[in-house]
Every structure is written in structure tokens, then in C-alpha cells.
Amino acid sequence: MFGGGGMNPRKMKQMMEQMGIDVDEIDATEVVIKRADGNEIVFSDPDVTKMDARGQETYQIIGEPSEREGAAEVESGDDGGAADEAIPQGDVDIVAQRTGASEDEAREALEATDGDLAAAIDQLE
């Protein structure tokens, strides 16, 4: 963007401030991009930077992505309420790991608690 491959980082920051660009690091543990086909691109332990250039926010994600199959979109005649939303596999993994329950038990607990992680863990402990 600035052609500063060998530019001093302090000088780069100074130039960005003069142009009205603020850069902040975000302490993220996971970034999930949900694709239209229901699958997800997951960045575990990423480096995330938010850049605000005069009101236009841009996020940069640095890390190793992995693909995760998401739940297929549910097609039904009802209004598509919260009960139709699939429980994310990451939530199932967290509950199963914390409680020692099987994935099926963890998913059932999450479904019974409308996806509430703490309540599902309490239910299984």
C-alpha cells in the first residue's frame, strides 16, 4: 500500500497517523468466516488488526486457516427461528472437552439450552 518494504515501522505509523488512519491489534482467539454453502473458514489463534481510515474499518487476519463443514441451511416452511439454527461444532467441542461428555451428549445439552455454553456445561456436570 505504501511501498515501504524496508520502511521503519515507526515512520510508517507516523505516516498513517498523518493520513488519519488508526491501527489497533485485536486479541482474538478464533475467527470464523461462514460461507454461503454452509462451510466455514476458521482461523485459530489469529493475529487480527483493525484499521480505521476515516470511518472505513478494515480487518486483517493473519494465521493458518482450516476448513470446517458447517450445517447445511435448513429449509422449512416455518419462520426460521432460533430452534432451526445449527449448533456450531466448536461449541460442541468446548462442552464435550469441559465435561468429558460425548459429542452427541454435548450437542443435545446445547440444543436443550438454546446454545448456551455455560448452561449446557452445568447440565452435564
Rank of each mutant, 00 (worst) to 15 (best):
1 M>K: 05
2 F>G: 14
2 F>P: 07
3 G>I: 07
4 G>S: 09
8 N>H: 06
8 N>T: 04
8 N>W: 08
10 R>K: 15
10 R>Q: 15
12 M>G: 03
13 K>D: 14
13 K>G: 09
14 Q>P: 08
14 Q>F: 12
15 M>Y: 00
15 M>I: 01
16 M>Y: 08
17 E>V: 05
17 E>K: 13
17 E>T: 08
20 G>A: 03
20 G>S: 04
22 D>C: 00
23 V>D: 01
25 E>N: 15
27 D>N: 12
27 D>H: 13
29 T>I: 05
29 T>H: 12
29 T>Q: 13
30 E>V: 02
31 V>N: 10
32 V>W: 03
32 V>F: 03
34 K>P: 04
36 A>I: 06
36 A>N: 10
36 A>V: 09
37 D>W: 07
37 D>S: 09
38 G>W: 10
39 N>E: 09
41 I>Y: 11
41 I>Q: 15
41 I>M: 13
42 V>W: 04
43 F>T: 08
44 S>V: 07
45 D>C: 01
45 D>H: 13
46 P>V: 00
46 P>H: 02
47 D>S: 11
48 V>E: 03
49 T>W: 01
49 T>H: 04
50 K>I: 12
51 M>T: 15
52 D>Y: 06
52 D>R: 01
54 R>M: 11
56 Q>N: 03
57 E>N: 10
57 E>T: 12
57 E>C: 00
57 E>P: 08
58 T>F: 07
59 Y>G: 02
59 Y>D: 02
60 Q>R: 11
60 Q>I: 13
61 I>F: 07
62 I>H: 08
63 G>A: 04
64 E>P: 00
64 E>V: 05
64 E>D: 13
67 E>C: 02
67 E>Y: 07
68 R>M: 07
69 E>P: 02
70 G>V: 07
71 A>Y: 10
72 A>F: 01
73 E>K: 14
73 E>T: 14
75 E>D: 03
76 S>F: 01
77 G>W: 00
77 G>R: 13
78 D>F: 04
78 D>T: 02
78 D>G: 06
79 D>N: 06
79 D>R: 10
79 D>Q: 09
83 A>D: 15
84 D>M: 12
86 A>G: 14
87 I>V: 15
87 I>L: 04
88 P>F: 11
89 Q>N: 04
89 Q>M: 09
92 V>M: 10
92 V>F: 09
93 D>N: 12
93 D>R: 03
93 D>G: 02
93 D>L: 02
93 D>V: 02
94 I>K: 15
94 I>C: 00
96 A>G: 04
97 Q>V: 00
98 R>N: 14
99 T>Q: 05
100 G>Q: 05
102 S>R: 10
102 S>A: 09
103 E>V: 01
103 E>F: 07
106 A>R: 06
108 E>Q: 14
109 A>D: 06
110 L>N: 05
111 E>F: 03
111 E>G: 05
112 A>K: 06
112 A>P: 04
112 A>Q: 12
113 T>I: 00
114 D>H: 06
115 G>S: 06
115 G>A: 08
116 D>T: 14
116 D>L: 14
117 L>P: 07
119 A>G: 02
119 A>I: 00
119 A>C: 03
120 A>E: 01
120 A>T: 01
123 Q>K: 09
123 Q>F: 03
125 E>L: 09
125 E>D: 14
